[in-house]
Simulated assay, not measured.
Amino acid sequence: MSSPAASPAPSVLDLAPVLPVVVLHDAEDAVPLARALVAGGLPAIEVTLRTPAAPAAIRAIADAVPEAVVGAGTVLSGDDVRTAVEAGARFLVSPGWTDTLLEAMRASGVPYLPGVSTASEVVALLERGVHEMKFFPAEAAGGTAYLKSLASPLPRARFCPTGGVSAANAASYLALPNVACVGGTWMLPADALAAKDWDRVRALAAEASQVRSTE
């Protein structure tokens, strides 16, 4: 994951094979959910800025679950960057990027993962010194076949594919030399979240944490 050269940090991509992508409508669920994910072996947690509860959820996790590495997803603007960092986000993820957004993320002082879906976008980021990226929407953009085709001509790029990644295909993505981890939601089924069944989330997270390359 890219970060300013003056303040290097261990890459979030290397903490676990799976990065849970969390959408929370109630900030009170944030802490028990984060604890369940961490207990299951998934310490990096992306809370998307898709709901009004997201900033409070990030703040709650940052304050109460220090063993979690909480970040913000669906970062689309400089305002989103400021909101996320002020809430305590330790990394930023965007579904795509522009130079304006990239500069805001770079200036934030925390690691960031800009989204790409084409070879040209990857080359443009490499030119700007960014080597770790989100590949989104992974399945719709070509899946494992597309990422495999990028490995030889663009060996410096590392990816976290997200979007359509599931328990059924995660290992196939992780088999690729340019994939560091995958993002997904399958360990966060809607019925478990609605029931606040944190034990089930922990069990599913534990299964996800053991996903490895099929090769």
Score class of each variant (00 low, 15 high):
residue 108 S to L: 09
residue 200 R to P: 07
residue 75 V to T: 09
residue 175 A to F: 01
residue 112 Y to H: 09
residue 42 L to H: 06
residue 7 S to Y: 15
residue 137 P to N: 10
residue 46 E to A: 10
residue 72 A to H: 06
residue 189 P to L: 11
residue 44 A to H: 04
residue 71 G to V: 05
residue 76 L to D: 07
residue 152 S to C: 09
residue 34 A to F: 08
residue 141 A to H: 08
residue 182 V to E: 04
residue 48 T to C: 14
residue 63 D to V: 14
residue 197 D to E: 12
residue 131 H to N: 12
residue 104 A to V: 08
residue 94 S to W: 03
residue 99 D to C: 03
residue 80 D to L: 10
residue 123 V to D: 07
residue 65 V to I: 12
residue 157 A to D: 00
residue 196 K to D: 13
residue 186 W to G: 00
residue 52 P to L: 14
residue 161 P to G: 01
residue 1 M to K: 11
residue 205 A to Y: 03
residue 76 L to T: 12
residue 159 F to L: 04
residue 27 A to Y: 06
residue 59 R to E: 15
residue 103 E to G: 12
residue 177 P to H: 04
residue 36 A to M: 14
residue 19 L to Q: 03
residue 146 Y to E: 01
residue 104 A to Q: 06
residue 188 L to D: 01
residue 63 D to F: 14
residue 88 G to I: 04
residue 43 P to N: 13
residue 113 L to Q: 00
residue 72 A to P: 05
residue 40 G to W: 03
residue 81 V to H: 02
residue 75 V to H: 07
residue 30 A to H: 04
residue 158 R to D: 00
residue 65 V to G: 07
residue 175 A to T: 05
residue 80 D to R: 08
residue 193 L to W: 01
residue 174 L to Y: 00
residue 52 P to F: 13
residue 201 V to D: 03
residue 53 A to W: 08
residue 42 L to Q: 05
